[in-house]
Amino acid sequence: MAEVVVVVFDFDRTLIDGDSDDWVVKEMGLTQLFRELRSTMPWTSLMNRMMVELHSQGKAAEDIEVCLKRMPLHPRVIESIQAAHRNGCDLRIISDANQFFIETILKQHGLLGCFTEIVTNPAFVDAEGRLNIVPFHDSASTPHGCNLCPPNMCKGLVLKRIQAADSEFRKRRYIYLGDGKGDYCPCLRLGAQDFVVPRKSFPLRNLIYNKQALIKAVIHEWSNGEELAAVLLDIIDRILIDENSRTEVMASPDNGCKTTPVSYP
């Protein structure tokens, strides 16, 4: 029954408590250069420039990997992801970080195999051994046209594509967990049967409550890894109880019905 549940995580400051970009910049001694260049280029391009700098210093992708493996992940968050995966939930990540950083951290904590899909800025190691980070959307050749999102990624369009896999007879229920401005657009695409889980005192929460009438989904807040895990598992339990109740009603002899998949209005 848990296959009706799709859990979508942002990564930085959501699935992990901190920011993977900041972690690499600080841990690998790039803070001063990063600050000098911060106002001169988009964030993804700036992170790619940091990778150029590390390569010029003789640092290989393996050195960046070692750095990322030291990044902590709350043990209760790990447990909640594993529990949701065991119960058959469709777990996904939509993040403005990058593929190399996310996959390295998830592998370190034994979580990579729990996720159906990770949508983020691509990253690859070239023939010279340098890590390259490129935008998910090419704003020059294929702009996404959303004025709510940064030029390199519209998370709303990504969620729309995931939702398009649902059919008239199989409407899955979504749980979206996030913290930043870029998470607001996909939250507008959630329905009344869905849940949005913003981090307290972060931009997404403020955007939601400034125009709460635009949000159809049920809102549950969290502030740390312990709360995130508890809220997530509680929502999943509530959905499954609700779905079981619906199925029992459909299968009740009093209704003269056989057990059938439940569709939503």
Rank of each mutant, 00 (worst) to 15 (best):
K160N: 09
A140D: 07
Q163H: 02
N147E: 12
P150D: 00
C146D: 06
Y174F: 15
L159A: 13
I162D: 01
K155G: 04
P143M: 09
D138E: 01
C149I: 07
P143G: 03
H137G: 03
S141W: 01
R173Q: 14
P143Y: 02
I133C: 11
A164P: 07
H137C: 12
R170A: 13
Q163L: 03
A140R: 11
F136P: 10
V134Q: 02
S141R: 10
D166S: 12
L157V: 13
P143L: 01
L159D: 08
A164E: 11
R161K: 05
C154S: 14
I175M: 04
F136Y: 06
F169L: 05
C149Y: 00
K171L: 02
T142K: 15
Y174V: 09
I162K: 01
I133A: 03
F169H: 12
K155R: 15
I175E: 14
S139Y: 15
S139K: 12
P150V: 08
F169M: 11
P143H: 06
S167C: 01
N132T: 10
R173I: 13
L177A: 15
P143W: 00
M153H: 12
L157K: 13
Y174T: 03
I175Y: 14
S141T: 01
R161L: 02
F136V: 00
M153Q: 15
T142E: 08
Y176R: 13
Q163V: 03
D166W: 11
A140S: 15
L131S: 09
H137R: 04
C149Q: 01
A165E: 14
E168Y: 03
P151K: 09
S167E: 02
I175R: 08
H144L: 08
F136L: 04
G145A: 05
K155L: 07
C149L: 10
E168S: 09
G145L: 02
N132A: 14
C154E: 03
C146M: 13
N132E: 12
E168M: 11
F169A: 13
Y176F: 14
N132R: 08
D166K: 15
M153K: 10
N147D: 15
D138T: 07
N152Q: 12
L148G: 02
L159G: 13
L157R: 15
A140K: 12
H144R: 09
H144E: 03
R170P: 09
P150S: 02
R161C: 05
M153A: 09
V134Y: 07
P143E: 01
S141V: 10
T142I: 05
P151W: 06
I162A: 03
S167K: 01
K155W: 06
H137T: 15
R173C: 04
A164Q: 05
P151I: 09
H137N: 04
D166G: 04
V158W: 02
L131F: 00
N152P: 11
C154D: 06
D166A: 05
L148Y: 04
C154L: 03
C149K: 04
K171N: 01
G145D: 02
A164G: 13
C154T: 07
S141M: 06
K155D: 02
S141G: 00
Y174H: 10
T142V: 08
